[in-house]
């Protein structure tokens, strides 16, 4: 669809504003449902001015993935698979113990993950050991400018 001209738009806008205000004034008004198809009925839809939106229902895959076996795997599997897939942590680059502590702290304090304080050392130990085993960890020494540098605990992860 081409963008309408300013003239068309302003004309349409006045009309549409009236339509919208009128429509909002009567909350029970509904668009008539489309005629029933001969076989399975289509999902409910609304349409106007040549564009339709049809109700949608989907199934999202669930994740059965777990953290691989290792010391404290039971603790991290019990705590860190419900809000997000294990892959979120498993795909991270090698992080130091301080950096993993900052991540776990952010999950608890900012995102309110129901992780017991007593479980934090075991979770951090698991993740730090995982980072140490990564190929990037050994050669990445020169890339680690400041071992005390933790990622911004308040930052988003977009």
């Amino acid at each position: 669809m081409k963008t309408p001209s300013i003239g068309t738009l302003s004309f349409g806008f006045v009309g549409a504003t009236v339509v919208l205000l009128l429509a909002i004034g009567s909350p029970n008004s509904r668009v008539a449902p489309p005629p029933a198809a001969p076989t399975a009925p289509p999902p409910p839809s609304v349409s106007a001015r040549g564009f339709s939106l049809a109700s949608t229902s989907v199934d999202l895959p669930t994740d059965e993935g777990q953290y691989p076996a290792g010391p404290h795997a039971d603790v991290i599997n019990a705590n860190c698979t419900s809000c997000h897939s294990a892959s979120m942590a498993l795909n991270q680059p090698p992080l130091s113990g301080d950096q993993w502590t900052a991540e776990v702290t952010k999950m608890r304090e900012v995102y309110k993950a129901p992780v017991a304080a007593a479980d934090v050392p075991a979770i951090v130990a698991y993740l730090t050991a995982m980072s140490t085993k990564q190929p990037g960890a050994a050669k990445g020494k020169a890339q680690d400018p400041d071992p005390k540098a933790a990622p911004d605990v308040s930052g988003g992860s977009g």
């Binding site: 669809m1 919208l20 429509a23």
Partner: peptide, 8 residues
């Protein structure tokens, strides 16, 4: 339905 009636 109302949104679809506004200028596009």
């Amino acid at each position: 339905a109302q949104l679809l009636k506004l200028p596009r």
